[in-house]
């Protein structure tokens, strides 16, 4: 199968890649760039485990061909961890035990951050609704909702103080 040369901007680094046009972005991130924090759960866009940020919007990496992402700003859990942008969410997840096996967690964190960026003061039903595209088999979701709620309140308080 013929390959395409594309340039992907991932976590602020530019990568020139030779890939098959059929390759989806989750596979390319994992297999070509070894960014294994983006997980694969279903590869048909339901489970949400491969959620990343593309041009600021949360996106299922399994539903996007890598060639479609050329020129886009791609952010994965690795980049968001290194930058510290979601450090408070990660800390809250850890203290609330909002993860068990951890497989859904990177995507869940990115989805939660997306909510808090757009709605700094969500109620529990809104949090549940926003993460309802991310499947977690372990926790039963309540601890995740608690952790997100805690961070929302903490950011509000910090914002009021500032």
């Amino acid at each position: 199968m013929g390959k395409h040369v594309i340039t992907l901007m991932v976590n602020g680094e530019s990568h020139r890649l030779e890939i098959e046009p059929r390759a989806h972005l989750a596979d390319v991130l994992r297999d070509e760039l070894a960014l294994t924090g983006t997980h694969i759960g279903c590869e048909h866009g339901v489970c949400g485990a491969c959620t990343i940020r593309v041009d600021g919007a949360i996106t299922r990496a399994c539903l996007l061909l890598a060639v479609q992402a050329e020129g886009a700003v791609i952010e994965t859990i690795e980049g968001l961890s290194d930058s510290g942008e979601i450090g408070d969410l990660q800390d809250a997840f850890r203290h609330r035990n909002a993860l068990q096996c951890g497989y859904c967690t990177p995507a869940m964190l990115i989805t939660a951050q997306d909510l808090l960026l757009h709605n700094p003061n969500p109620d529990r039903a809104t949090i549940r609704d926003h993460i309802s595209g991310n499947y977690c088999r372990c926790t039963g979701y309540q601890a995740i909702v608690d952790a997100v709620e805690t961070v929302a309140k903490a950011r509000q308080t910090a914002g009021e103080r500032a």
Binding site: R30, L35, T36, G37, H39, E78, Q90, N97, L99
Partner: peptide, 19 residues
């Protein structure tokens, strides 16, 4: 008390067999 090793998982630095 928080479980040990959770930093690894929340940062996407785990090692699942798939990885």
């Amino acid at each position: 008390v928080p479980r040990p090793n959770l930093e690894r998982l929340v940062e996407g630095r785990g090692t699942y067999v798939s990885d």
